[in-house]
Amino acid sequence: MNFSNEELLEMYSDIVKSRVLGEKIVEYIYSGKIAGAIHPCLGQEAVSAGILTAFKKSDIKTFGTETHRAQTVMAHRVGWKPFIAELLGRTGGCNDGISGEYHIHDLKNGQLPAAGALGGTWAEISGFAWALKNDGKKRQIGFAPYGDGAISQGATYEAMNIAALFQLPVLFFIENNGIAMSTPVEKQSPLENLADRAAAFNMQGVTVDGDDPVAVAEAVLNGMELAANNEPNVVEVKTMRWEGHYVGDPQKYRDLSYKNDLDSICPVIRFEKRLKALGILDDETIKAVREAQTKEIVDGFDEGLVQNVATKEQVLDYSRVYSNNAGGEL
């Protein structure tokens, strides 16, 4: 599959955007501007950039969730400003800052509800994909991502079984960053490639380099096409988490020597070298892209931070809890 120079540069812009967002999330958490457990994407930016490229290039509309480190994809779906405001718990957020980034839900923009206990949304998205198929909606699919940790949950196996049995338009995507909180993937699964689980359901499963945004985009585009033809399938991308599970996690559970030379494993630098070799990126553009992405993100945070926080009345609004007057008092 070929990407034009413009697409590759946009892919580069997206990988930088993911990097800057990750850095800013860490910065704002340390400065107390962001509350709650937010998991930055540092080290995994190529995954978000690849997914975004596929979403932009394909005419297939996706409905789904994101892994918690793919905030750039969430923001792409719901809009940058509503996303950042929700992350900050402000009223400009897609749910007035009341749900939080973790529980982001915006169906009109294709964002299906996430689940705190992991595993279940693969089955939820399969149900949504069934509705798409049953309504005869062509070129619309469910996009169901999880990390290497979540897919040990039984519900993911049930979801793959359901999707394969009913031949549903759904793409199961595994963002394998090698570690689930503190447990390395080799202590979670006897398989080298987690996508091999697809074989148990007679589905295609492929594993690609998750630090290469082009490989991710190609694999996602292929998976989306199969899904749109009612062939559910699994795409696994292998990447590496740089941060702890949460910001400030001392990570006593793993060898941190990789931090001594992050440049050698950096997906952003690797992609820069590749684009430079192709002659479509130079240092000046690198600087300009970084500045532009930083400005957009910082402006978004600045704009969000001056917004109000939801009032008690907004939070305890009966009509947020029940759809009609037959619900009983709060």
Binding site: T121, E124, G127, F128, A129, A131, L132, A155, A159
Partner: peptide, 9 residues
């Protein structure tokens, strides 16, 4: 969980 997804659909 499937039923919840179908309801959203």
């Amino acid at each position: 969980l499937f039923s919840v997804g179908a309801a959203l659909g």
